[in-house]
Simulated assay, not measured.
Amino acid sequence: MALLNFNRPADYLDAAREMAETGRPTLARLLAEEAADRTTDPTEAARIRDEFTGASLRQES
Rank of each mutant, 00 (worst) to 15 (best):
N5A: 09
T39A: 03
A15S: 13
S56R: 15
T53Q: 12
E44Y: 00
R29I: 00
A10H: 06
D50C: 05
A35V: 02
F52K: 02
P9I: 04
L31F: 13
D14V: 04
R17I: 03
L4M: 13
A45R: 04
P42N: 04
A45W: 09
G23L: 09
L31H: 13
D50L: 11
T53P: 07
P42K: 15
D41N: 15
F52R: 00
E21K: 05
L30I: 10
A10L: 10
D41A: 07
P25A: 12
S56G: 12
T43P: 00
R29V: 00
T26I: 05
E18A: 12
E51T: 07
D37T: 07
E18D: 14
E18I: 06
I48N: 00
A36K: 04
A35M: 06
L31D: 14
N7Y: 13
L31P: 05
R24T: 00
F52A: 05
R24P: 02
R17H: 11
A35P: 11
P9T: 01
A46Q: 15
L4H: 08
E44K: 03
A15H: 05
R47Y: 07
R29G: 01
E44A: 02
D41K: 09
E21I: 02
E18Y: 03
A36T: 12
N5S: 03
R29Q: 08
T39S: 08
G54V: 09
S56H: 10
L4F: 07
A28H: 15
L13M: 03
R38G: 08
L27Q: 12
R8E: 10
R47A: 15
T39M: 03
A32E: 00
A16T: 00
P42H: 09
T43S: 05
T43A: 13
N5H: 10
L13D: 06
N5R: 12
E34N: 13
A36I: 02
E34Y: 01
D14H: 09
R8D: 05
I48W: 13
P42W: 11
T22F: 11
A32M: 08
E18V: 11
E21W: 02
R49K: 15
A16I: 01
S56Q: 13
A32S: 08
L13G: 07
A16C: 02
T40A: 14
F6R: 10
D14I: 06
A20L: 13
L13A: 13
L4I: 07
T43W: 00
E34C: 06
L30G: 03
A46G: 11
A15R: 07
R49V: 09
A32Q: 08
R38N: 15
T39H: 05
E44P: 01
M19H: 12
P9A: 04
A20G: 08
N7T: 06
T40D: 13
S56K: 11
T22M: 05
T53E: 14
A32P: 04
R24L: 14
A36G: 06
G23H: 14
A16V: 01
E34L: 09
T53R: 14
R8H: 08
A36C: 11
R38C: 05
R49W: 02
D50P: 02
M19L: 10
R47L: 05
T22Y: 12
T26L: 05
G23Q: 12
E34A: 15
A32G: 12
R38P: 03
